[in-house]
């Protein structure tokens, strides 16, 4: 192909160069046509070069966009992964805080905050369902003497054992916790005063049978507890109910301790 073109070009150039053809009317026309073709070839080359460079630019741009997109995707997945882990840490801390804020550190029994929440809940339920519930305020008899005679460590041991005893063998809906000092609060939803008395009688009996180690050569410490009960009176506020339980506990103590009132 190339040689045929070349041949043609050479022939045309030879014809144009021949002085014999100069006067021929086709000579001028061929000269014009020759120049015209030359311009066309030049233009075609320019267009091809331009088009090629545009194509190259577009390809480069696409490549860099792909690279950038890949980089961004990788980065986003890293951010999400790290962020998820931070959230995990927060969740763990939250659970731990919840644990700390709801348990008494010595006995690990529910603390006063939890008891107050549960008391409010029992109160609301009793109001809504027109049912009843009982609270029992329990106090270790002569606890100060235990601390004074055997030391605070023994006192702490007593509280831990009593807490275990009082919190065990309860129904799922019941709750017992440390109200403060040597006082425990038991909440018995959907329970009558008579049933509550039976529960408390069993608990107080179990306390009587406890033997807490006092130290080498010492006889074990024996314990009793007093309990004051209050059954919910429709319309009564939680604070009033707590006051009645406190008063009942005071009565139990006054009548000689190791007993339930009323």
């Amino acid at each position: 192909m190339r040689s045929r073109h070349q041949e043609l070009e050479e022939r045309v150039q030879a014809l144009l160069a021949d002085p014999a053809n100069q006067a021929h009317p086709l000579g001028a026309a061929l000269q014009e046509l020759w120049e015209h073709m030359g311009e066309h070839v030049q233009r075609l080359e320019r267009i091809t070069t331009l088009s090629d460079s545009y194509q190259w630019m577009a390809r480069e741009r696409e490549k860099s966009l792909c690279d950038r997109l890949e980089g961004q995707l990788r980065r986003i997945s890293r951010i999400v992964r790290i962020s998820d882990q931070y959230q995990g840490v927060l969740r763990e801390m939250n659970t731990r805080l919840q644990e700390i804020s709801s348990r008494d550190p010595l006995t690990e029994a529910p603390n006063r905050r939890v008891l107050m929440d549960r008391l409010q809940l029992a109160h609301t339920q009793a109001c809504n369902r027109a049912s009843t519930f009982v609270i029992a305020m329990l106090d270790v008899d002569h606890f100060k003497q235990i601390n004074d005679c055997y030391g605070h460590d023994a006192g702490d041991r007593v509280l831990v054992l009593l807490s275990e005893l009082l919190c065990s063998e309860l129904r799922d809906r019941d709750i017992c916790g440390r109200w403060g000092g040597e006082e425990f609060l038991l909440i018995l939803p959907e329970t009558t005063l008579a049933d509550a008395r039976a529960v408390l009688a069993r608990k107080l009996q179990a306390v009587r049978t406890l033997h807490v180690e006092a130290g080498p050569g010492e006889p074990p410490i024996r314990l009793t507890m007093s309990a004051g009960l209050a059954q919910y009176i429709p319309g009564e506020a939680v604070s009033a109910m707590l006051n009645r339980a406190d008063m009942a506990l005071y009565q139990a103590k006054k009548k000689g301790r190791d007993q339930i009132a009323p």
């Binding site: 980065r75 890293r78 951010i79 999400v80 790290i82 962020s83 931070y86 840490v89 927060l90």
Partner: peptide, 12 residues
């Protein structure tokens, strides 16, 4: 210590 998502991005 704790970083929220937009802080993680800023640090990156």
């Amino acid at each position: 210590l704790y970083l929220n998502t937009s802080s993680i991005k800023a640090i990156m």
